[in-house]
Amino acid sequence: MELPRFHRLRGTLYRLEGSRCEDCGALSFPARQVCPSCSSRKSLLHRFKGAGTLWSFSELYQLQRGYPKDVPNVIGLVKLDEGPMLLTQITDAEPEDLSIGMRVQMVTRLIRSTGEAGPRVYGYKFRPVVGG
């Protein structure tokens, strides 16, 4: 059931919280204890805005257990405007509408659920930008 694990992750999953190095300002998502640029161990919480570009994507035909089997299931790499890249599911889009370089935005969706009795894990996904 992993309840404590998902509880610890809620800032990351719900609010896109990562870290900013106190010494050199490098941003990381997810948060890192050691700065990838200057190796400093001092960092602050940084909340990312959730806007980015689609760097790559793939339509999955074989899923892991417990993932909502929507048609289709698309995974992607998104480069956030602030710099870091993250792996995420791409939602609210037909694969033919996706293209490398398109603008995407974060939404909070059901990532995983284990059957009808288990907990529902919510977290970030990205979709083509809605509205303007």
Binding site: Y14, P68, K69, D70, Q89, T91, D92, V107, T108, R109, L110, I111, R120, Y122, K125
Partner: peptide
Amino acid sequence: PGADEDTITMSIE
């Protein structure tokens, strides 16, 4: 709703 949506996700948005 999409398969990854429910009252919680929609309320958040």
